[in-house]
Amino acid sequence: MSTEILSVSDLTVGFPTDDGLVTAVRGVTYTLKEREVLAIVGESGSGKSVSAMALMGLLPKTARISGSIRYRDEEVLEMSPKRARAMRGQNIAMIFQDPMTSMNPVYSVGDQLAEAYRSHHRVERKVALGKAVEMLDRVGIPQAKDRARSYPHEFSGGMRQRAMIAMAIINSPDIIIADEPTTALDVTVQAQILETLIEVKDSVNAAVILITHDLGVVAGMAHRVLVMYAGRGVERAEVSDIYSRPRMPYTAGLLGSIPALDSAGGRLHPIGGAPPSLINLPPGCPFSPRCPLVSDRCQTEEPQLLATDIPNHEVACHHWEQVASAPDPTLLFRTEEVQA
């Protein structure tokens, strides 16, 4: 893990709507190193997918994008359409949540993989099909040669997701963006898919941006974590620090909200309220209406993502020192036992 291959800085994405401009991403900054797994964690509407979509050129034309996305030495937002097309698929590939809607139902799985290969390599169709079968075999699809002739609907959910992974790695990309890759799957299938994803990522030496809401999946897969809330990065740290030493009240609140699998546990400590609407963001820190540590300053001045007492651990909170000094930060969210 050494060279930086991707650097996103101050990325802002807005969508004009009838109700006004919705700023889904409000200045996100992160970097990705070779072969590392970066998890972007957040709840619905936090903007976690949108930055990846901007990278892949998948946003609607009406989207207003500013900031910078650098892939190696190139600025993605200023690339010629031709270069951008070549980069997408060849250097950066994406795996979506729902493989049923992201594959073409009227082409066989093998043909779709071959097409992905042929759009970046000048080879005969037959050669590309051979490559497709090889990839299907590598992601653990039994009788890959026969199954390549199947159509997506003939595959189970887990098999389809394997085929998606095969398509993502067929051009040996540097970066694989996995957007909720296992959210639609059962846990036993999720375990298979995550194992496959790690294996193939290592085999092609790719880095992974894992976009998810599942803190369990992050714990098992990621090296570093970026927590997003209301369109901004609010905490960025090594994976072990996020879980053992969170510095952002929101992160602590999330951790206190998940029941433990490995113990019966006591009462959960949920975060009150709901995430804010992106059209009507509160002034100051967007988390302040739900935060137990809220002060006047939080309601006027939005905190920036800044360094903390831990190396490589940044947080956007005016009161992170208070979180740091709490023996168990999840208890900050403790409520009355019974509200009668």
């Binding site: 846990v187 803190l215 998940i258």
Partner: peptide, 12 residues
Amino acid sequence: SSAPIADPEKER
């Protein structure tokens, strides 16, 4: 054993 635990040390 397939269900992930939200604790990197235990999970790994």
